[in-house]
Amino acid sequence: MSTSFAAEINSVLAALILLTSFGLLVQRRIYGLLHIFAWQGLLLSISTAIVGYTAGLHHLYISALLTLTIKVIVLPYILYLLIHRLRIHKEVEDMINIPTTMLIGIILVILSYHLMSPIRELSTLVTRSTLAVALATVMLGLLMMITRKKAVTQIIGFLAMENGLFFAATSATYGMPLVIELGVALDILIAAFIFGIFFFQIRTTFETLDLKAMEKLKEEE
């Protein structure tokens, strides 16, 4: 596989990852969200493997495998179990202003390209053009966490942000050192257990997973 061909495949994958980010932003059904999230993880894993192949860096295969296990299998499965156990799989989130959210999303993508343009100039890697997409994925995950009001969707937004960070590490530097990636993966797994416990705590205290119920703590006077 020639370098330019690999770069092109990678750009296609980056575009698809960006597409899934927008998909997450507007998908209202919970299972739909879960599927898109798993797809995003799969695309990320393939992209990492391709970069590893073209750059001849074998530690990226381990990263790709790690992504595949955690982001495509373990986390969606844990979320699936939680959704099933909490019986919220039929819930549909009512969202207002989907066009506005999309518009803000597009502005964030443009902003990311603008922010990353000086860094693109400096980089010599084949993956340099995808760094802006990585930042955009982080920003869109953030936007999703702000606009959504359900605990499960906020968590998916959080995990999508982590996907963006991981993508940034592969596209800017061919991946962080393995120690760091393992540590980050461990942190994400601990976080997964914590939000699992949280869903039950929120459900038992508020009798819903809707965060609108949580507006008790405000500035008093």
Binding site: M145, A151, Q154, F158, I194, F195, F198, Q201, I202, T204, T205, F206, L211, M214, K216, L217
Partner: peptide
């Protein structure tokens, strides 16, 4: 303590 306020505070902290 599992009070509503405590769960809310922890969720905010986490997120």
């Amino acid at each position: 303590y599992r009070t509503p306020a405590a769960v809310e505070a922890a969720w905010k902290y986490f997120i």
